[in-house]
């Protein structure tokens, strides 16, 4: 089904990661599969990805021209998600280089999260 002239949205799906289900568990969970069916019935899904846990996150900041790489998610609670890019590249160093080039790396931070496939 096509939506002409509709709005585009990003859903940010969050939890505390205490007992995260595996992808296999999600695939057989009726609550999840029925939501997916509903999602596709009601909307045109442009991109969808499950993210690996925050332990695998890397945060990139650029300050005074220097690229600062740190482990984990961004700690500054005053920063809010302002954009999302789904990309495929060679490795984490390449992703860091791309992230460091974004203007927001200089004023905020770019958090890199591997996609859980």
């Amino acid at each position: 089904m096509r939506l002409d002239g509709g709005m585009k949205y990003v859903l940010l799906i969050c939890d505390d990661e205490v007992d995260a289900p595996t992808n296999e568990q999600l695939a057989t969970d009726p609550a999840h599969t029925s939501w997916l069916a509903e999602l596709h019935r009601r909307s045109d899904v442009r991109a969808m990805a499950r993210l690996r846990p925050v332990l695998d996150a890397t945060t990139v900041r650029v300050r005074d021209g220097e690229t600062l790489v740190s482990d984990g998610p961004f700690a500054e609670t005053k920063d809010f998600v302002g954009g999302v890019v789904l990309l495929e590249c060679a490795d984490l160093d390449e992703a860091i280089a791309i992230a460091a080039g974004h203007p927001y790396a200089r004023r905020g931070s770019v958090e890199i999260r591997p996609v859980w496939e």
């Binding site: 690996r52 332990l55 695998d56 996150a57 890397t58 220097e66 690229t67 482990d71 060679a90 490795d91 984490l92 160093d93 992703a95 890199i112 591997p114």
Partner: peptide
């Protein structure tokens, strides 16, 4: 084990960094 998992899952490359990354 978490560190080894992150290397694998986050795609940390197994290499000597190229010249532009070497100093840091």
């Amino acid at each position: 084990s978490r560190a080894k998992r992150k290397i694998q899952e986050a795609g940390i490359p197994y290499r000597v960094p190229p010249a532009e990354l070497l100093p840091p």
